[in-house]
Simulated scan of single mutants.
Amino acid sequence: MADSVLIEGLAVETVIGVYDWEREVTQQILVDLDMAWDNRAPGRSDDVADALDYAAVSERVTRCLQELKPQLLERAAEVLADLLMKEFGVGQLTLTLRKPGAVPAARSVGVRIERGSK
């Protein structure tokens, strides 16, 4: 199946980083998700109950990152992937986390992971 649900550029303000000063401020993380999802049922029914609710996913991702306050993007990515697979039944996903401004000469730095079976 090649269907997916996308969330791109979800901006989350949270505490993230390993340096002391980073633990005292919030910084922005940008989240991109490509989640495998069979869109045939919601395509036929036009009912959100049959779909992967991207608003609910976005709210849950935001809440998770704000509560987690990770030191590393890698930790945040693993926790989010596990959460999305367990709580929303996503079987496969590609998750990208970016931290704009972390390196002055770069627009952003980040990590990308793929989890689940294709």
Rank of each mutant, 00 (worst) to 15 (best):
D3K: 01
S4I: 02
V5H: 13
V5L: 10
L6I: 11
E8C: 07
G9P: 12
L10E: 12
V12F: 06
E13Q: 06
T14W: 08
G17E: 01
Y19L: 15
Y19H: 14
D20P: 10
D20R: 10
R23L: 08
Q27N: 03
I29R: 03
L30C: 12
V31F: 12
V31W: 10
L33E: 09
L33W: 11
N39S: 14
A41F: 02
P42K: 00
P42A: 07
R44K: 15
R44V: 14
D46Y: 03
D47T: 05
V48C: 06
A49V: 09
A49R: 06
D50P: 05
A51M: 08
A51Y: 13
L52M: 09
D53I: 07
D53T: 04
Y54G: 00
A55Q: 06
A56W: 11
V57K: 00
S58L: 01
S58W: 07
E59L: 12
E59F: 11
R60K: 13
T62Y: 07
R63Q: 14
R63V: 07
L65S: 07
L65W: 11
L65K: 04
Q66F: 05
P70E: 12
Q71E: 13
L73F: 04
L73I: 01
E74M: 03
R75V: 07
A76S: 05
E78V: 11
D82Y: 04
K86G: 03
E87Y: 13
E87S: 12
F88G: 05
G89S: 10
G89C: 11
G89W: 13
V90R: 13
V90Y: 14
G91L: 07
Q92F: 15
L93I: 07
T94R: 15
T94Y: 04
T94A: 15
L95S: 11
T96L: 00
L97G: 07
R98D: 06
P100H: 14
A102I: 14
P104F: 13
A106W: 13
A106H: 12
R107N: 13
S108L: 00
V109S: 02
G110F: 15
G110D: 11
V111S: 07
R112M: 04
R112I: 01
G116A: 09
